[in-house]
Computed example of a mutant assay.
Amino acid sequence: MRQTNLARIGLAVITIVISGCEAATPTSSAEPGARPGAVGAGGAGASVGSDDDFVADVVMKNMAEIALARIALDNSTNPDVRSFAQRLIDDHGAAGTRLKSVVSGSPIEWPTQLAEKHGETADALAGKRGPEFDREYLQATINGHQDLAAKLESRIDVQSLTDWKTAAAARTQSKAMPEPTTAMRDTAVRPDNSGNESTMKINQWAADAYPVVQKHLDTARTLENAAKQ
């Protein structure tokens, strides 16, 4: 890792995520045949792997979204992009705090700095401004949220995920996806069942975070389409 922008960004994000920030629930890959801002297909039913690896991975992805959003607040002049970046900071900060509470007392090792690929993206974006920055930032945000959503899907009940996506796609044919905590309350995303109490708590966190991540992804795609025009 380089010690320039990465050191500054890494320390700021560590303070937010590891000391008690919350992450947003959040997004996934594109639904076949859906409009560009629609809900993603993701990877439900993927191998769960260890709780340690899952938590470390989502914490790292969460840190990256907060770091890039902070750069957007400095480098973007588009009020819609800036507003979206602040929402990501708030939502992902909150999700990080919740996850930290869920795994409190466990020996899970938390990341202390951005992964190299995230650091390289942050450094590249730090040198850009204006429309070029907006386009590249939004693309990086889309890619990051697709990865995060797919990771979350590995901890979610497959049938409830299918039902949620079907409902969300039906509501996003001609407008942005509705707020998941209000208009989507009738279609719950359920955690994958586990006989391990700690694993079940982590799975519940993933299920709670997922609709928010999908909302982020939908918004990022809408903003990206606008930025291309």
Rank of each mutant, 00 (worst) to 15 (best):
R2V: 07
Q3E: 15
L6P: 00
A7Y: 04
R8V: 12
I9N: 07
I9L: 13
G10K: 00
A12E: 08
V13A: 04
V13S: 03
I14T: 13
T15L: 15
I18K: 10
G20P: 00
C21R: 01
C21K: 03
E22M: 09
A24N: 10
A24R: 06
P26V: 11
T27Y: 12
S28C: 10
S29F: 01
P32I: 04
P32S: 15
G33F: 00
G33W: 01
G33H: 00
R35D: 08
G37N: 08
A38H: 04
V39S: 02
G43P: 02
G45L: 10
G45V: 04
S47R: 12
G49A: 12
S50V: 10
D51R: 11
D51Q: 08
D57G: 12
V58D: 02
K61Y: 02
K61S: 02
N62R: 07
N62W: 02
N62S: 15
N62M: 10
A64C: 08
I66Q: 05
A69I: 00
R70S: 14
R70I: 08
I71S: 01
L73A: 09
D74I: 11
D74F: 04
T77G: 14
N78R: 13
N78C: 13
D80P: 11
R82E: 07
R87K: 13
L88R: 06
I89Y: 03
I89E: 03
D91L: 15
D91P: 14
G93M: 04
A94M: 14
G96H: 02
T97Q: 13
T97P: 10
K100H: 11
K100N: 15
V102C: 09
V103Q: 10
G105Y: 05
G105S: 14
E109A: 15
E116P: 00
E116H: 05
G119W: 00
E120L: 13
A122E: 01
A126N: 03
A126M: 02
K128E: 15
F133R: 05
F133A: 08
F133G: 05
D134L: 08
R135G: 09
Y137C: 09
Y137M: 09
Y137D: 06
L138E: 03
Q139Y: 01
I142C: 05
I142K: 04
H145F: 01
Q146G: 03
L148W: 01
A149N: 05
L152T: 02
E153F: 01
I156Q: 04
V158F: 05
Q159N: 14
S160C: 05
S160L: 00
D163V: 02
W164G: 02
A170V: 11
R171P: 11
R171Q: 15
Q173V: 13
P178Y: 11
P178D: 11
P178I: 03
E179N: 13
P180C: 05
P180I: 00
R185W: 12
T187A: 14
T187E: 14
T187I: 12
P191T: 02
D192K: 14
S194Q: 12
G195V: 06
N196E: 12
E197W: 10
E197M: 14
S198Y: 04
T199S: 15
M200T: 07
K201N: 10
N203Q: 14
N203R: 14
Q204Y: 08
Q204E: 11
W205Q: 01
Y210K: 08
V212I: 02
H216W: 03
L217Y: 07
L217V: 05
R221Q: 12
R221G: 00
A226E: 10
A227T: 00
A227V: 07
Q229S: 12
